[in-house]
Simulated assay, not measured.
Amino acid sequence: MESEVTVRVMLVSPAMNAALREARFEGDAPLDESGVRRARAAAAGVPDAELCVSGGSERCLRTTEALGLRPGPEPAPADWDLGRWRGRRLSDVSDSEPEAVAAWLSDPSAAPHGGESLSELCARVGGWLDGLGEDRGRVLAVVEPAVVRAAVVHGLGLPATAFWRLDVAPLTLTQLSGRLGRWNLTCGQPLVSEGR
């Protein structure tokens, strides 16, 4: 009987920045000084990996740098494309487009912002996850919280609406280990203790 090799995908959510504090749809804002300090303090808690990748947002790239990581040339999945809502506060969009926000939150196929629907995000991230070959070993990816949530939804075969029930704190580690069609989850491990 052949042994089945597993891959371990370690997803690190980036440090805090002003856009996250203000509940803005990603506007590709850089880390602030507090985020840089916290990421540097968390560097010792980052696990080793054979492959390191980073999302392309400024927040992911600066977090990767502050953690002392050198990502390979292969990119990690990009953040959720929220079209014309990008850079706006959730509260502002809710005030100006309540029906659109309600549809977006209740229907995984809705994309009233003109970007990617939740279903499309989960499928894209799931395709990346399933495309990681078993020969990859340990893969470390610094990715936006929406990507972490979509990976968990896909990896565990959850309905897309479960995405809204998952919280991903800054600088936490979420691990999916397994292989195509069978993933196990370890979630929410802080990279740095609260006392640091």
Results as ranks from 00 to 15, higher is better:
Pro98Trp: 09
Gly114Ser: 12
Asp81Ala: 12
Leu105Val: 06
Glu97Ile: 08
Leu105Gln: 07
Ala78Thr: 08
Ala76His: 09
Ser96Glu: 11
Glu74Pro: 00
Gly114Ala: 13
Arg89Val: 06
Pro112Ser: 07
Arg88Tyr: 01
Val93Phe: 04
Gly115Asn: 12
Trp80Met: 02
Gly115Arg: 11
Arg86Cys: 12
His113Arg: 01
Asp107Cys: 02
Asp107Asn: 08
Glu99Cys: 02
Pro112Trp: 02
Gly115Glu: 15
Glu97Asn: 04
Asp107Phe: 04
Ser94Gln: 15
Leu118Ala: 03
Leu118Gly: 03
Trp104His: 05
Ala102Gly: 14
Ser106Phe: 00
Ser109Leu: 05
Arg84Phe: 06
Ser91Asn: 04
Val93Arg: 02
Glu116Val: 12
Asp95Thr: 10
Arg86His: 05
Ser117Met: 06
Trp104Asn: 05
Ala111Phe: 01
Ser94Leu: 15
Gly83Asp: 11
Pro75Trp: 04
Ala110Lys: 04
Ala111Trp: 02
Gly87His: 01
Glu116Tyr: 14
Arg89Thr: 04
Ala111Gly: 13
Arg88Ala: 13
Ser91Leu: 10
Arg84Leu: 13
Leu118Lys: 01
Arg84Cys: 09
Gly115His: 14
Arg88Ser: 13
Glu74Arg: 13
Arg89Lys: 13
Ala110His: 06
Ala103Ile: 00
Gly83Arg: 14
Leu121Phe: 08
His113Phe: 04
Ser117Ile: 09
Asp92Met: 00
Leu118Asn: 01
Glu74Met: 09
Glu116Gly: 13
Asp107Arg: 06
Ala76Ile: 12
Asp81Leu: 07
Ala78Leu: 10
Glu97Ser: 06
Ala78Tyr: 00
Glu74Gly: 09
Leu121Ser: 08
Arg88Val: 00
Gly83Asn: 12
Glu74Val: 15
Ala103Met: 02
Asp107Met: 02
Ser117Tyr: 05
Glu97Gln: 10
Pro75Cys: 03
Glu116Asn: 11
Gly114Lys: 14
Arg88Glu: 12
Gly115Val: 15
Leu121Met: 09
Leu105Asp: 00
Ala111Arg: 14
Gly83Phe: 14
Ser119Arg: 11
Leu105Cys: 07
Glu120Ala: 15
Pro75Gln: 03
Leu90Lys: 09
Leu121Lys: 07
Leu118His: 01
Ser106Arg: 05
Val93Trp: 04
Glu97Arg: 03
Leu82Tyr: 07
Ala76Tyr: 09
Arg89Gln: 12
Ala103Ser: 10
Pro77Glu: 09
Ala76Val: 12
Leu105Pro: 00
Ser94Thr: 15
Ala100Lys: 05
Trp85His: 04
Ala103His: 00
Arg89Ser: 08
His113Tyr: 03
Gly83Met: 12
Leu82His: 06
Ser106Tyr: 00
Val101Ile: 14
